Computed example of a mutant assay.
Amino acid sequence: MPENTARFGIGVSNAVRDIDQTMEIVAVADEAGLDHFSVSDHPYVGRMLDAYSLVGVALGRTRRISGMVNVSNLPTRPAPMLARAVTSLSALTGGRVVLGLGAGGSWDDIARLGFPRLSGAEAVRAFEEAFGLIRSLTGGGDPVSFDGEFYRLDRVDPAPVAAPPIWTGSVGAKSLAVTGRQADGWIPGHAADWLSTRYRESRPIIDEAARAAGRDPRAVATVYNLPGRISPTPLAATRDAEGRWLGGSVEQWVSELTGAVLEHGAGGFTYFPVGDVPIERASALWAQEIAPGVREALAEH
């Protein structure tokens, strides 16, 4: 990602009851020029739409915006089939997809779906194995055979489509190291931002692992899940007593995010509306005023 630029996305609901609202928000975001929309992946929750089904339909109704699952629940989406899903979406949309990848969580729920329960160490090893396997099934070329700890392929044809960017939701030290070695982006957990302890303690692990693998740490962008209120007038305090971002006016958002990019190297933001402003209105303000305002400010530096 070029210096002093950032990606801007919007988080949307994948609840069955919110279909109309979600499609409206994605359409507005697409028209306004946002970079991506993001949906969660909880396939064990009946009231939620399947994340990849939602992404596919939404991408089919848009022209420019990319879609991503934030992040794909790898234990319930075996890597070869996940590779097929994202390369198919990429081929159908001209490359408008980002692969969000997670090692897994909520293991009781995963097991209820009939998938094997992995230990933490096993899940991280399967996570890292998935990167190479997914990428091997992209870009065309000869059939792929693979004999790993968790996956085995026998002469499988790769898709004639480039691999999408892969962003992770890594939290633990071993998973963070995988991100440094393998990923294109990292989404800090628990909506931690650039001033958080989580970021300060986690990002050096990514950077060290990247350097050890011969990579430039800057190749792994930090893209923040960022909830917050957009208020009609400036707030007296934009952060709480613990330093967590609360939000503010459009101008306060623009100032804060511009500083995050220029002073802390933020690579992007996925906004999640909270507060008393209707979700559709907050999403439109983000797409039509805040993101363009930050881009304009960054272009001046």
Rank of each mutant, 00 (worst) to 15 (best):
R96G: 05
L298Y: 05
L137A: 07
D50L: 07
G248Q: 01
A103R: 01
A266D: 08
G293K: 08
L113S: 05
A29C: 12
R17H: 15
L34P: 04
G189V: 13
L137R: 00
R84G: 10
E149G: 14
P232D: 15
Q21V: 05
G169D: 01
S53G: 01
A159R: 00
P165M: 03
S38V: 02
R211G: 05
L59Q: 10
R218E: 15
S38D: 15
S66H: 13
P165E: 07
A299C: 13
R239A: 10
E289R: 15
P188E: 01
L137N: 08
E201G: 00
E31F: 06
S13M: 14
L262C: 07
R63G: 10
F272D: 08
G11C: 10
G185K: 09
S249D: 10
G114W: 12
N70H: 12
F150D: 06
S145Q: 06
F269H: 06
F150C: 09
G228W: 06
W286H: 06
S38Y: 08
A159M: 12
A192Q: 11
R64V: 04
T168M: 11
T197D: 13
A236W: 02
G120D: 05
D216C: 09
R244Y: 13
H264W: 14
A173S: 14
G248P: 01
G180M: 03
T238K: 08
G141T: 09
F150R: 10
S106P: 00
P160L: 03
V57K: 13
I187F: 08
H301L: 11
A219P: 09
S106T: 07
V178A: 04
V57A: 14
V171T: 14
D207H: 04
A163T: 10
V274N: 03
A183Q: 08
F146W: 12
S119Y: 01
S283N: 05
A260V: 08
V156A: 07
G268S: 11
G56M: 12
N14Y: 04
E201V: 14
D184A: 12
A15W: 13
G33D: 04
D108E: 15
D216T: 15
G259Y: 00
L118W: 07
T270E: 14
E149S: 10
I206L: 10
P165L: 05
P164M: 04
A212Y: 00
D50I: 03
I134E: 01
L195Q: 13
S283G: 01
L262R: 13
A287G: 12
R295A: 02
R47T: 09
G265S: 10
G132V: 04
T222K: 02
